[in-house]
Nucleic acid binder design. Structure first.
Lengths: 352, 352
DNA sequence: TAGGCTGCGTGAAACGATTCATTGAGTGTG
DNA sequence: CACACTCAATGAATCGTTTCACGCAGCCTA
């Protein structure tokens, strides 16, 4: 095949895309009728309808969404802004949103804010211009001024993975509970010194999980300051899990924690691998608990005890809430909070 | 806060969203001038411009993308259809697409086809109606009739992760090379019986990787039928990696492969964990190699040798290609193929 | 048979931005 | 002083739908 033949293979040169008028002409009806066939087929007699339908097929007519939207006022799309689509948590969230949105034949606009209010705002503006039906946001900045302004201008906003402290609707997970479950579990197993591989408390999830851990200790009638050993990590990845585990192993036997609660599974993986490589038996030497229940958590050499969050469901529910709010028949709760679930595996329980 | 006060807090009731006309009126200019301020500010005198700009600010004017698009003919958005946004590979791909698309201020429409031609086609129709500038697709079906039809109707189409056997532009990875690299590596280390934990050959990646494995053996002057032991898996997850590893361990010592090449890292994880738990030393007893280089591959108890694919770059490049093709100044290659890279770690090389 | 329905279809008026031929004011030149 | 020329700004036409007030048969009922 020569370069020429490739050129010739190019799509039909500048043929005008057919409009309702072209269809109407071919089917010998008015444009209104074509529109009716498209949107309220029951109002058109079968004869006429089939004539219009074959005209549509013959011309390969594709309705223009922008024209429809211009007239109808509302778009058939929804925007979602997450911290990072590359992160498994948000990935599952997005998939949940997509599943709900797609059921209504709506399109999903996605972008990542990278936790940068600047980027978040750019995406918000873009989506507002596109006239989306609403926006699902995992907010980057603590101050929600942009979001409130957007809402005031008429766009529905639903927060995800954050509890709407203000009056914005939201769908979130109870991180306090999510941390108290595994810590209670460790206490029950007899652990009395528990390390917390936590992240910076400016991240609200980290702050909530610290609170949850303390709560569990208090509920057990113990003193959190004695039981919990906070070991903050600058960044929540496996490397820092490794480093923190090494620091932990360097502690004298007498004061060394016998269990580690990690703020996520990646950190737990780093910690776990370090312990195993150092010859420390898990869970008998040191128990390890993670958070998130990533797909590979159950498959590690020592299967990982962890906390499962209903990520897909959060996304689905947030989208559902958005559509409900948009539907004017706004009934039902506007602030949903899911309970996470403890998944016990060998890394904490020798019997599992 | 009572339910009543919540109701009262609702956004301004049905206030009309301002249009260019409102802005023009307030700024005492014509609509054309407002449009110029928006799109070609340099053509407007500074005095007038600032008057218009403050009117825009005062009214909180947000231009309607659908009106713009209706007139301009082309949308400021791009569609992407992948097999599953929940899959890390596609997740990274999507992020690459987003990064390229976002740089041009375009919006990204995303959906998952779940490898279902039906769903894929629905998404294609939706995006065509939205008038997207082009569509990036990881095709579900082998037959590309819909895609060709779409292209013929004027929408730019770029395939991802698939080599454009037909004349459609594409961005892909060389899977044959991707499999031959690790197999050559294993042969070099002295392995003469290598198990292939592969998936169904109907998946083109699996077929290509089998071909690549055989190629490497042939290149080493050996007989593929003697060296390679194909152990097909019905599904590419960690559980089946575990099962296959158990089958492998059940083979008599004399014929048992000394190395496993897995079609992805999840399968490799299943295999690795099973070996370690069975007390088989890795890599000295059995070496393991994966594919994908997922974020946790380096952090396992035995860090995993694997093949890294430039996923982010594939997405970025595909989006870049799309925009170039759309730009009419269509120069440069329309079929890009990336080379994967072998990442050697301890699971194959004791010295690593 | 008049009057009132019902069911189908009609076609013009939006929707809100962009474009472009045109007007008008101001400036420099012969 | 008339003329050409530039730079700003104008405003009507346009994009492709949806909507809605009407018209027109045909049919039933009184």
């Amino acid at each position: 095949m020569t370069a020429d033949s490739v050129t010739t293979a190019a799509p039909t040169p500048a043929r005008h895309r057919p409009s309702v008028m072209d269809v109407a002409r071919l089917a010998r009806v008015s444009v209104g009728t074509v529109s009716n066939v498209l949107n309220r087929p029951e109002r058109v007699s079968p004869r006429t309808r089939s004539r219009v339908e074959s005209a549509i097929a013959e011309l390969e007519f594709v309705p223009s969404e922008s024209a429809r939207q211009l007239r109808a006022g509302r778009a058939r799309s929804v925007g979602a802004i997450v911290l990072d689509v590359g992160n498994p948590f948000f990935t599952a969230l997005t998939r949940g949103v997509e599943d709900r949105i797609g059921a209504d034949g709506l399109a999903l606009l996605v972008s990542s804010s990278d936790d940068d209010p600047e980027r978040e705002n750019r995406a918000l503006q873009l989506y507002e211009q596109h006239g989306v039906r609403g926006v699902l946001v995992t907010p980057a900045s603590a101050e929600r001024a942009d979001l409130h302004a957007l809402r005031a201008r008429g766009t529905t906003v639903v927060l995800m993975d954050v509890d709407g402290e203000d009056e914005l609707p939201s769908v979130s997970v109870d991180d306090v509970l999510g941390a108290s479950l595994p810590v209670a579990h460790l206490l029950e197993l007899g652990h009395r010194r528990i390390a917390l591989f936590n992240g910076p408390l400016t991240i609200h999830q980290c702050a909530d999980r610290l609170a949850g851990a303390r709560l569990a200790v208090v509920n057990a009638g113990l003193d959190p300051d004695e039981v919990l050993v906070e070991m903050p990590l600058p960044s929540l990845n496996a490397e820092h899990g490794t480093l923190a585990a090494e620091r932990l192993l360097a502690l004298p036997e007498s004061t060394r924690p016998t269990a580690i609660f990690c703020v996520n599974d990646l950190v737990a993986l780093g910690a776990l691998s370090t312990l195993v490589r150092a010859g420390v038996p898990v869970p008998d030497g040191v128990a390890v608990v993670g958070y998130d229940d990533v797909p590979w958590a159950a498959m590690l050499v020592v299967p990982l005890t962890t906390v499962r969050q209903p990520t897909h469901e959060i996304g689905w529910t947030a989208a559902d809430l958005l559509l409900r709010l948009d539907g004017e028949d706004a009934v039902g709760p506007t602030r949903v909070r899911f309970a996470p679930e403890l998944v016990v595996r060998r890394s904490s329980d020798p019997g599992a």
